[in-house]
Design a protein around this nucleic acid. Structure first.
Lengths: 152, 152
DNA sequence: TTGACTCAGTACAGATTCAATACCAACGTG
DNA sequence: CACGTTGGTATTGAATCTGTACTGAGTCAA
């Protein structure tokens, strides 16, 4: 399979990864959630070539994850902001951050803390079942073909 | 920045992505959570070159996400199974699947359903705050430097 | 005991993608 | 009018990915 065929797979994970599964795309999204919006900022923070930044931002805009908006005229300059669709990627970023915190943090503790404004506490995300509200672990989940299934 | 420098970043997301951020690694992990264990099965399901399968499986074993175990002798054959560390990636896969379900599912519905054995219902994952138990949305989260912070 | 088959890889060459560097363009400032 | 800022393109050598073929150890069937 080529990378470009992923989005044709009858698998939500494959289709999502066709958009965000790229090496640098998730790093760019991480920065988006930290408030970074400008081309130069992405490029400087990640230290990657401008070509890649251009390309990934364009892809994310095409996919509706980011939107490109002018923030000044003369000369016209654009910034990249998360759309509502983009905001829905927050759980993905948070889940990755948690895994990283637990397995790759320095002894001193994780480098970034996240505070829940609702309760004012630093927190880690917990995944619960949408039906019963109980935390879900891998072994308690049984995957099976759904209506949209067509192979794989 | 080169890809190999990611794990030196003071960012849990960067470090986690150094392991799982690869194009195919997350697809392999998806299959692991669906019960796939053998080299040939990964290769056939993904349709990618054997070189890549070999390489990614080796990396995941090195990182302690999978373990390579003999399941028969004469000839000795190995299978790849998720370790406890690997199981902790389940929230990541689930979060990606949810995003895919919401934005890229066919009209008929998502291709894969997941049932929570605890309550017997098909579910979607919901992320809640570990402190207060309320659902967390992107806008309610404030990130700031923690103890392990050192730049970026 | 020969030949076909399975599983788990390696080897290698060609295609693709990435990265670094330089450059372009529009405008404001001094 | 030179220079700085922002947001890109163009180009080219390096790294990575892909497809194909091959190895090797063992089983099975005739």
């Amino acid at each position: 399979m080529k990378w470009d065929d992923l989005n044709a797979q009858p698998c939500s994970i494959a289709r999502a990864l066709a958009v965000i599964g790229d090496r640098w795309t998730l790093m760019i999204l991480r920065d988006c959630f930290l408030g970074v919006r400008r081309f130069e900022a992405f490029q400087a923070r990640l230290g990657i070539s401008r070509t890649i930044v251009t390309d990934r931002l364009r892809l994310l805009v095409e996919e509706g994850v980011l939107r490109r908006e002018a923030y000044q005229a003369n000369p016209v300059r654009h910034e990249y902001r998360l759309t509502d669709k983009g905001l829905e990627l927050h759980p993905v970023i948070l889940a990755i951050a948690r895994f990283g915190d637990e397995h790759y943090a320095d002894e001193a503790g994780p480098p970034v803390l996240r505070r829940h404004k609702g309760c004012g506490c630093d927190f880690q995300p917990v995944q619960v079942c949408s039906a019963c509200g109980e935390p879900v672990s891998a072994r308690q989940v049984e995957a099976r073909a759904g209506v949209g299934f067509a192979g794989v």
